[in-house]
């Protein structure tokens, strides 16, 4: 037996009106819900909205409300399943990469709200005083990687940096979209600003080794015979808030 509150929630989210509520009032709450959902998703998924346009985006938001209604009081945490849902909508078949774009948007949004990360700059001195087999690079939690069969980072940058939206870039994206090479997008945060760049496969492997807690010397050994250059990578990684500290390795491990 539903309570009055359950009947009202059901009436707002579905097309039923089991509580015989005033249809004019119910219509207002239904419109408010869709408007709030569209607003929340457009904040979290700006690239997707630009890609598919307002009308399709609104349709997707309505589907999202039906399939994955919000369960938390904060609209800002709603949307984890939006990418998956977009990939299943027949209306978006002509946007094969939209699902991956949503994953990247969501990663950006998540990182924009994450706790601030600080780098222990003093600890970086260990790189000058200790040998590579006795130190470990600790990574921060202020970066995320999203991989795709599409040139995600290029698409994202094209939509977020108007200076970058040149004919050449569009041609390059189209060409890459036609290929099936996997591209990784690195999401990082510098001075509270979320940014995205392409991350080569070698760098992804490198970060995975560091995340496993591998000693610096072992990780470097794994990267031999690749294009990865540690000396070039380190200052950029510190600048991008990816490295949080250098610690001495547990030599007994």
């Amino acid at each position: 037996m539903d309570t009055e509150q359950q009947r009202l929630i059901r009436s707002i989210f579905s097309h039923d009106n089991p509580g015989n509520f005033d249809p004019r009032g119910l219509a207002i709450y239904r419109r408010n819900l869709v408007a709030s959902a569209c607003r929340a998703l457009s904040v979290t998924f700006p690239t997707v909205e630009q890609l598919i346009g307002e009308s399709l985006f609104r349709h997707a938001a309505q589907q999202m409300l039906s399939e994955f209604p919000p369960t938390a009081p904060d609209w800002g945490v709603w949307g984890e399943h939006f990418g998956r849902l977009l990939g299943q909508l027949p209306e978006l078949e002509s946007y094969p990469y939209v699902s991956d774009c949503a994953q990247l948007d969501y990663a950006c949004h998540k990182l924009s709200r994450a706790a601030d990360c600080e780098t222990d700059f003093d600890s970086l001195q260990l790189l000058g005083t200790e040998t590579a087999d006795s130190v470990v690079l600790k990574l921060s939690e202020c970066f995320l990687i999203v991989t795709s069969d599409y040139p995600l980072a290029d698409i994202w940058l094209a939509h977020h940096d108007s200076d970058q939206l040149t004919e050449e870039r569009i041609r390059r994206i189209r060409k890459k979209t036609g290929n099936t090479a996997t591209q990784g997008a690195l999401v990082y945060r510098k001075n509270h600003r979320v940014q995205v760049r392409e991350i080569p496969a070698d760098e992804q492997r490198w970060l995975a080794f560091l995340q496993q807690g591998m000693r610096l010397s072992d990780a470097l050994d794994e990267m031999q015979n690749t294009d990865f250059n540690f000396e070039n990578w380190l200052p950029e990684a510190v600048f991008m808030n990816i490295v949080s500290a250098v610690t001495t390795a547990d030599l007994t491990a």
Binding site: T3, E4, Q5, Q6, L8, I9, R10, I12, F13, Y29, N32, L33, S36, A37, A40, P69, P70, T71, A72, P73, W75
Partner: peptide
């Protein structure tokens, strides 16, 4: 106001300020 109730087996948030009895 109330703002959430069970629907389809989950507690759903209305995203709105709904009247109470």
């Amino acid at each position: 106001a109330f703002s959430r109730a069970e629907w389809l087996g989950h507690i759903v948030h209305s995203g709105d300020l709904l009247p109470v009895v």
